[in-house]
Amino acid sequence: MMLKVDDIEFKYRSTPILDEVSFSVEAAEVVSILGPNGVGKTTLLKCINGILKAKKGTVMVGKESLTDMSRLEIAKRVGYVAQKSDTSMATVFESVLLGRKPYVRWDVTREDVRVAGEMIDRLGLSDLSMKYIGEISGGEFQMVQIARALVQDPKILLLDEPTSNLDLSNQVRIMSLIKDTVEQNNISAILTMHDLNLAIRHSNRFILLKEGRIYAAGGVEVLTPDVIGEVYGIPVCVETIRGQPVVVPA
């Protein structure tokens, strides 16, 4: 088992956001966290990598507890692609190289530069490498963010709405990249998603949150009209097209 989240509880001031959230993720698995806006999806990701301190509960990566680790040590094990990221005055190469920060002692080494360069070349971002982040498209920026998380050499990849604001082609491209990377490197990815059909196509398992608790979890079989309707509060149909379930509002 790669990741085990046990009994996470988080409150903002006195308002409970997450309560008794427990699940585990296997190696080479992509898990999508689903649920309406404000249900606690992003908070859950932040609790996993220690950006937010959970009031209760533990997070284990393999046999190591992230709960007791420093931020820097967590960053060596968990790569995080935030929903909001600033377009700083950095080039694409500099942005990807930043992913080596948890390993930097005094300065980046030639090896760090090589690792970042290789990732950029492999993702097909070579032609953009010396461009400023502000000069590239939204899809390319998302690729850069994922590249930055990957050069952290993480065991767990957390991605907060990785396909939001992307066109159809970039959505598929990013999701394929995540799935292939996870499978080839035997790591795990946890995503928060709004597009149920994209999640169904590219994820192994699903966790549906309702009012800060896990309402349902499992493979594609848990995504029934009743469950989705209950979680999102609207009636839906689940039809099968080319052997794959497709969620359609009723």
Binding site: K46, N49, I51, S70, R71, L72, E73, I74, A75, K76, V78, G79, Y80, A82, Q83, K84, S85, D86, L98, G99, K101, P102, Q145, R148, A149, Q152, L158
Partner: peptide, 8 residues
């Protein structure tokens, strides 16, 4: 958030 995710 990116900075915190990188251990800062």
């Amino acid at each position: 958030e990116t900075a915190r995710g990188l251990g800062v």
